[in-house]
Design a protein around this nucleic acid. Sequence first.
DNA 1: GCTTGACCTAAACCATGGTTCAGGCTTTAA
DNA 2: TTAAAGCCTGAACCATGGTTTAGGTCAAGC
Lengths: 145, 145
Amino acid sequence: MKTFSIGEVAAHFGLPISTLHYYDRQGLLPFVSKNTSGQREFTAADLNLIQTICCLKGTEMPIKEIRQYIDYVMAGPATIAERQQLLRHHKERVLAKQQQIEHDLVEIDKKIAKYDSPAAPQMITRELQFAAHEKEQHHLANPYH
Amino acid sequence: MKTFSIGEVAAHFGLPISTLHYYDRQGLLPFVSKNTSGQREFTAADLNLIQTICCLKGTEMPIKEIRQYIDYVMAGPATIAERQQLLRHHKERVLAKQQQIEHDLVEIDKKIAKYDSPAAPQMITRELQFAAHEKEQHHLANPYH
DNA sequence: GCTTGACCTAAACCATGGTTCAGGCTTTAA
DNA sequence: TTAAAGCCTGAACCATGGTTTAGGTCAAGC
């Protein structure tokens, strides 16, 4: 079982090295050791934890919260309940966001479908006219061209 | 059909007024007119467009791209194809991101389940020991406690 | 043994998406 | 008719999540 250089790890996860440095600075990689000449050596276990970090980041967990999670991990088995709570809470947020996106996508799909209709130019022209009319009614400048 | 003040619109969409000002500065609200004394008056049609902006923002479309879309809208029916392409492209990106999140959530769920097991403390202690062992093997400092 | 590519840190820089502040007009309700 | 609340602009400020630069050390191949 060999160890990996930062360049290898970066390539493996498709991240710039600078991002790994940044994560380290933010306290996300306290588990990564350095060899006697100061270079980071990543073990297999390290890669697993970085994989987890990538999952959390991929689901938009803020760095500070990832850091909290990592701190729990570093503290050993005593923090299992806290880790679980943190992950559960995160999961709920992500699911809620997924729901909202789902909803927004429906609206966007409606727009796409509308633009697909052969009657789209007429409909849109009418809408534009109505909008202009509405402005006029209220003695407002017409911003449409 | 009345018009709405910026405060009313902000309340309606659950946004700070400052965000609407910001959007206007970024060119997202060229369709909003001002009355003779310089205050914005939002019409019903304006609210519809802002609703669309909220959908795009809710699905993480960057401001610049929302602006492009709005520019197309302002240009009238001639840009229907461009609007559709923009929305289709956006939709694809959102779906891809949803997929990736789905995948990440599975991993997170595994963690949660693992922490749920009564054997979790033992498992985690063993993992920790193994990680420490791996470090030792490579003559690296043990960062765990 | 020397060059080249990989790595190190610290600090500066950057883009994005806002928020806050200052100073001044407008509208509304007492 | 006047005070309070609401709106205006421009500019400064901020947090987040990195990236870039500078100046130096380290390691691998020739």
